[in-house]
Write a protein that binds this DNA or RNA. Structure first.
Lengths: 347, 347
DNA sequence: TTGAAAGCGCTAACAC
DNA sequence: GTGTTAGCGCTTTCAA
């Protein structure tokens, strides 16, 4: 920078001003600076800049599993919006582990990220203290931490599960089983709540032997399904509360020799890229995942600019039931369910 | 840090030494420093540290589409290894666009990343110049840039495509169509090469009307498939050179009313999480994607430590053909292909 | 083994 | 509008 200033016969301050472009600079000098920069191949040192300004243009994004398509789309949404606002994303992996999550947060604080977006591992344990005490702008996404006043973007999980369950009940199924995630997670518990509300609405009693909570992973869905369907009488329908567990459930059902939807009607939470490629096409509760990420980043951008509402915002997006074939019995109980069975092609 | 030093009745230099832990410090003083840090809730400023040390503990990872499961697994592999070596990952999105890629590189240089891993948009255009001129350790992954002496980790695409094609030819198919990606990309062109080699080996002439190159995306695969199978005579087999295009191809085949494998035998490059959930189960050429990422990060780690080989390393990993049902005709031409049709369950 | 002090490259007062 | 200059918080000589 010193060299650039010398070459352009100006001071370093002028070079800085040209680089930042906010203050007025004589056009002629500006030209000289620009060409000196070009000539010398000068690149500003962002680290020094960050130190001096006391802030970075980086956001930390903490998720538990980049290989889960849900988080993948979330990352994409966050990144798109971050791009627009001039931030980069440092991607941290909590692996669904509290300790690791803690280390991620510590790292973010050390690196002085301008803000953080996280999908907390646990609903209760407040690892947030660190972020709060350092005043790091933060947005929770997908899950929330109970009783914490912080910006949050989530999907209406209760509604989604309710809709999916009602859809199965409406088709005449009476033994609707449910596989959800850990009760400690917002998503896990809220989806069960939605399921229970639907039963209630239909004046059906909740039967504990129809409900399983496991780990939101393929293996968990697989084992829970085996477990559920080895009972007698067995369920006549199943709602699985996330994408990976749905994959596991499909494997299990096939292994058990049960046909969908003839033997079991199926609804899965989270849309799947291949939902319309399988036979039968899968009925899913689609979440607006990318928008979830976008919204979180937008909120964070606002906080970072300081033009936020004083109080924490909570954005709740609505999921949408994609009715396809897996949930539609060949012999519908009610006459009008045929209208539902048209498969809305998603391409 | 000043405060910590004061509280511990030592100098800032000693605090620094304790923090870094390489130099010898009197145990008693060390204890005082540690408890002062605890007491004051002090956290070292990583930005200042980076400035002073002239290097960061961050690697930049540039990929074109985080929503493609291939890149997702790649990211995971990189991240796992980076974690182990004490680096964080800043994830940049090139969107398959040269301009955007250029901006990503510029950003990395500005932010003084310790190293870069990238999957270059174009095989020829050397946007690498910037990284080279700044001396940023770099590893290419998945694709390479022709004639550039830089560490590279790729999969043996020629071999993968060759194996897949041979498998189809071995089952007796004689009109094997091929859909690949852009000829300018290493992956696109090498996979066509593998396909051609297999034809050659079988003493079959390459027929241009059986080959399509498109964009490695769902829509491209879909359109190319429609295009290929509306010909007369139509192909009796199809090899699709990536995951997304395979999805598109499946949609197209269904739309055309063609059954797999009865009417068309199918092999897809890239394994798919749901390959064993569809009917028929899909034969795929699986890439060791996570290992690809891990290997790249390992190479980069070595470069950053300076304990690298002087010359650029090229690591080539082998893909593996996963023979399932989609490639196996109901009436096999050769007697022994039945042995191949056992589905190797991947879970 | 420790402390004093220089300075990494930049931005933002401040004085002109 | 422009230049001078004081740090941002840390690490690392260097001398003790």
């Amino acid at each position: 920078m010193h060299d650039v200033a010398a070459a352009a016969r100006v001071s370093v301050a002028t070079v800085s001003r040209v680089l930042n472009g906010n203050e007025k600079v004589d056009p002629e000098r500006q030209r000289r600076v620009l060409s000196a920069i070009e000539e010398l191949g000068y690149r500003r040192d962002g680290v020094a800049r960050n130190l001096r300004r006391g802030s970075t243009k980086v956001w930390g994004l903490v998720i538990s599993d980049i290989e889960n398509p849900f988080f993948t789309s979330l990352v994409r949404g966050v990144q798109d919006q971050a791009d627009e606002e001039g931030y980069s994303i440092i991607l941290l992996n909590s692996d669904e582990d509290l300790d690791k999550e803690g280390r991620c947060l510590a790292l973010m604080v050390e690196e002085r990220v301008a803000g953080a977006i996280l999908s907390p591992v646990s609903e209760t344990k407040s690892v947030m203290d660190l972020l709060i005490s350092t005043g790091t702008p933060t947005v929770m996404v997908d899950r929330r931490i109970r009783g914490l006043a912080v910006d949050t973007v989530i999907v209406d999980n209760v509604l989604g599960a309710y809709d999916g369950t009602m859809h199965l009940l409406g088709a005449g199924h009476r033994r609707v089983a449910c596989i959800s995630g850990p009760a400690e997670s917002t998503t896990g518990s809220n989806r069960v709540t939605g399921y229970l509300r639907a039963l209630e609405k239909t004046a059906l009693a909740a039967e504990p032997e129809l409900i399983r909570t496991t780990d939101f992973k393929r293996g968990g869905g697989y084992r829970a399904t085996l477990d559920l369907f080895r009972q007698d009488p067995r369920p006549d329908a199943l709602i699985v509360m996330n994408n990976l567990m749905t994959e596991g459930a499909l494997h299990a059902l096939r292994e058990l020799g049960l046909r969908v939807p003839r033997d079991v009607a199926l609804v899965g939470f989270d849309d799947l890229s291949w939902a319309t490629l399988v036979e039968p096409q899968l009925t899913t509760i689609a979440q607006p995942v990318r928008e979830l990420g976008r919204a979180a980043a937008e909120l964070l951008g606002r906080r970072c600019r300081g033009d936020s509402f004083g109080f924490p915002a909570e954005v709740m997006l609505a999921p949408s039931l994609q009715i396809r074939e897996s949930s539609v019995s060949k012999q519908p109980f009610s006459g009008d369910s045929a209208a539902d069975s048209r498969s809305p092609r998603t391409r």
